[in-house]
Design a protein around this nucleic acid. Structure first.
Lengths: 210, 210
DNA sequence: ACCTGAACACCGTTCAAGT
DNA sequence: ACCTGAACACCGTTCAAGT
């Protein structure tokens, strides 16, 4: 996020400028609309110029995902274990909801870079400090992360809400499926905030004691 | 999965044949390699012929997702609530792992069709029968589903495993991140089966009593 | 009703050329 | 070192034509 030290940005282009413009493009037009050519046009540059700073479209998307990941704030230093875990989960959520159309890049891609390990360190460090053996720490982290990814995919409209897409209450009641019809009023709406807190509490409770 | 009754398949093509060929194409070459033209070639047909049976590429992918969803078996009729929920979760997992490269179609798309509601009915019915009020049934179902989606995305290589992609133990130890290094042996491997059972137990326990 | 093929408006990326 | 633009091998989909 800070400007690169050392070499001044002599050209018009830089990896950072490209990634930020890419994120803006995703925010405005959605993932499906991203193309190297459109991004180049937005930067006033020949499409092939991007390849001097980025390794291709896939690497561009990975880079945008890393920009998003980097926006997760560090948890307050004085928090206890549960407070730390909760702060990180909420920070992750806020980072994704800040760029809902780009969030699937983080949620559905396997990032290979070092910067993707920073959040792992942020979660693992307090668990180990609290006395969790490393195997249990990793185990618990994976369960929490699976829940977070599934929940955020739903919030971000990339996964089923139940009651599929923008299904109407009337459609559900008239579906001919008795249980669906009976629960229709609840299937038709989804309080994301409440679902998130409900599930997060379950997962953090399940971590138990070291 | 059964052959369409009523009108015989007079042409070479039918929606069903197209969807099955599409699924086979995804299985063999992956989602990114799917194109209307390649699928048509595989069926020995002009690309535009597909449009007589399928509404475009997006509808094709939705259709393939529905084929996958339809493969979830009904739970045994004599099981208790927990057994029913567990059977459905395992059936869902098996259906996804049977076609890992196609699974993201189910896990990351919002299906609008009626057939996507069948699994919802299958889960909701036993919960309501067991006496759960509909709001709590939907609530619990959503939490379980978020966990399932997140876990399966990881199993299917579409979401972070932690220790990013095919990260080597040595890389993790040398990452310079102390907690990551300490937990490296556990980050480097992932027993999907165990993670799934661990998380599923947590979620089913959290459902509590009606 | 279904199938065809030409055509349009796009893609990502390679390569040779410029500065 | 960085930027350019022509070219290649693809896309999804519209449309007019065939049967």
């Amino acid at each position: 996020m800070t400007t690169r030290r050392g070499r001044p940005p002599q050209g018009v282009l830089s990896r950072e400028r490209i990634l930020l413009a890419g994120l803006a493009l995703v925010d405005e037009e959605g993932l499906a609309a991203v193309s190297m050519r459109k991004l180049a046009a937005r930067l006033g540059v020949d499409p092939m110029s991007l390849y001097n700073h980025v390794d291709g479209k896939d690497a561009l998307l990975d880079g945008i995902a890393e920009v998003l990941l980097a926006a997760i704030p560090a948890p307050p230093a004085d928090a206890d274990l549960r407070g730390t875990m909760s702060a990180l989960a909420h920070g992750f959520r806020a980072a994704m909801l800040g760029h809902p159309r780009a969030a699937p890049l983080v949620l559905t891609r396997r990032l290979a870079s070092m910067t993707a390990l920073a959040p792992v360190e942020a979660v693992l460090a307090p668990l180990l400090a609290a006395g969790y053996p490393p195997d249990r720490a990793v185990h618990g982290l994976r369960a929490v992360l699976a829940f977070l990814i599934g929940t955020l995919m739903r919030e971000v409209e990339a996964a089923p809400t139940l009651g599929g897409s923008g299904r109407r209450l009337a459609d559900l009641s008239a579906s001919g499926l008795p249980a669906v019809a009976a629960a229709a009023p609840y299937l038709a709406v989804c309080d994301h905030e409440a679902e998130f807190e409900f599930g997060l509490r379950i997962m953090l409770d399940a971590l138990g004691e070291p």
